[in-house]
Write a protein that binds this DNA or RNA. Sequence first.
RNA 1: GCGCCUGUAGCUCAACGGAUAGAGCACCGACCUUCUAAGUCGGGGGUUGCAGGUUCGAUUCCUGCCAGGCGCGCCA
Length: 582
Amino acid sequence: MSLTTPIAQALCAALELGPGQAGEIERLLSTPPNLALGDFAFPCFQLARQLRSAPPKIAAELAAKIPTGGLISRATAAGPYVNFFLNRTAATRQVIGAVRTAADRYGASDDGAGRTMVVEFSSPNIAKPFHFGHLRSTNIGANLARLFEFAGWQVVRRNYLGDWGTQFGFVIYAWRRWGDEAALAARAIDYLVELYVRAYRESEQDPSIRDQARELFRRLEQGDAEIVPLWQKFRELSLAGFVRTYTRLAIGFDNFDGEAAASRNMDAVIRRFVTAGVAVESEGALVVPVADVIGRDIAPLMLRKSDGASTYAARDCAEAIERYSRYRFDGNIYVVSRQEDYFAQLFVALSKLGKAEGWPVDWPALCQNVSFGFVRGMSTRKGEAVWLEDVLDEARDRARRVREEKSAANPRSFPVLPTAELDAIGEGVGQAALLYFDVSSRRLSDVSFDWDTVLQFEGNTGPYLQYAHARMCGIFRRAGEQGLAAGDAPAAAVADEEWALVLCIREFPSAVQRACVGREPHEISRYLGSLASAFNGFYNNHMVLDPADPGTSAGRLALVGASRTVLANGLRLLGIRPLEVM
RNA sequence: GCGCCUGUAGCUCAACGGAUAGAGCACCGACCUUCUAAGUCGGGGGUUGCAGGUUCGAUUCCUGCCAGGCGCGCCA
């Protein structure tokens, strides 16, 4: 039972409402701005009209009718609010018990039980650099995938590689003209990017290069025996590079089928659009009009260009159809930035086909584009682009250096560590700084890349969270040495800092839910920041371990244990490793 | 022209339609002979882009401006 349920029930009784309305009352409860005012608040504004009375008067009358005892220790009116104070000891016992019971499933749910969610994310372009900006889709998608799994969904992670299209013509053109096996073997993906950039730049002076690139891509599409093996080789090399980066970020995919795979069914899908009468000829191209459905001036979805070449849109249609027939998904998320119009066109076009062909399920309505903000300061043209691998390396090195400096300055708190452990901590802390930076603003805000901000380890950062976790683990290690063990509830009166921590722990499941509903991983980072802050407040004001007082120690250890469980669960949702030693 | 997104402290960002708009960074000061100081506490800092509207109440919702970013039939 939730802490707020008894409050809602008491309010229902006082208002002479039926028990069926307790849920509605419970949703109206809010949190006072500070603990001194109360633990939960009921605003009386909305009742004023029905009861024909002033909110403060209603609040005063209600407060007088709330029976105390059980979880509720006191109810007082404060202006238009009825503020509730809980029995801290009983409530703390309840919250800690809930965390212990659920353990690493605390915060999880079965909301998505029996349903499948496809998350398409990262989707790098093989002929283009994988720079820091690509972390956005990659991280948001990975976070959403973990969140939906935590909420009970069956999740499919799709990396829709940009492995097809004219850009491959450029790469192949460059390879045939300047290609060097040794350089390819040594630098793989970086070298391919250089080749692409060189060919593309020269094509701006010499348009015939563009024509040759198009011709090479046409030969690739036709399965030319000389070209196809090159494409396969380049694709494999690039993919291997991406996978190395993904591994460092602890991100995995179920499937890497990209545009090349989608193009296999493309012609058949285009024929279906034509046969169904959904696609029409326009200015020599084949398009699906969507303005009639969307209701404004918007371009049609183009399936085939006037020169007869297919478009990425046709491949996306084919891929979506294939995807639904394979997974029968209940949700399909595309983590792609700033393409809202395009996805609107895509989903409407597919819906039209569905209506014309009489599909039993209007699954295009289950598809959603999850957009996100732009990373500023990452322009390839201006030469600002920063490779993600380089940022990871720098983060790791700095984290390692910071730890070494701490050992030198304060060996008592930061004992000198074996090299292997130092390396692991560096990698973990660096990765945490990066991943947390990425989710520390809302999905749709633009973010600025700045080395010092990204690699910051103090304040509201990934390392700050890991540090709190390491401290919790340190307390348990020390407790073991002193022969102290956790109890199941506080032994004495619950102090403000302990109580604030308990209330924060209780909030985790609703933070997870908000993150899922809003497709907003930032909810988790924000929550964890407040949790770590609450813990540090507690930590700095109360000694957990006191061999002379095993009772108090046991109660506080229980609280630290619950905090650690929640912090670790949250960190894992963000893909950050909860470190035991820092 | 048609659309989407964003304007909050010097900077980076928060704030279920609710009480005095909060954190971090930076700056100034305090705290390690007690569990990790990557921490904690205090201080200065704000006309929430502008103007209307809805509401008991608007940073939040609606309309119009202003500013910035991004996307719009033959790039993907």
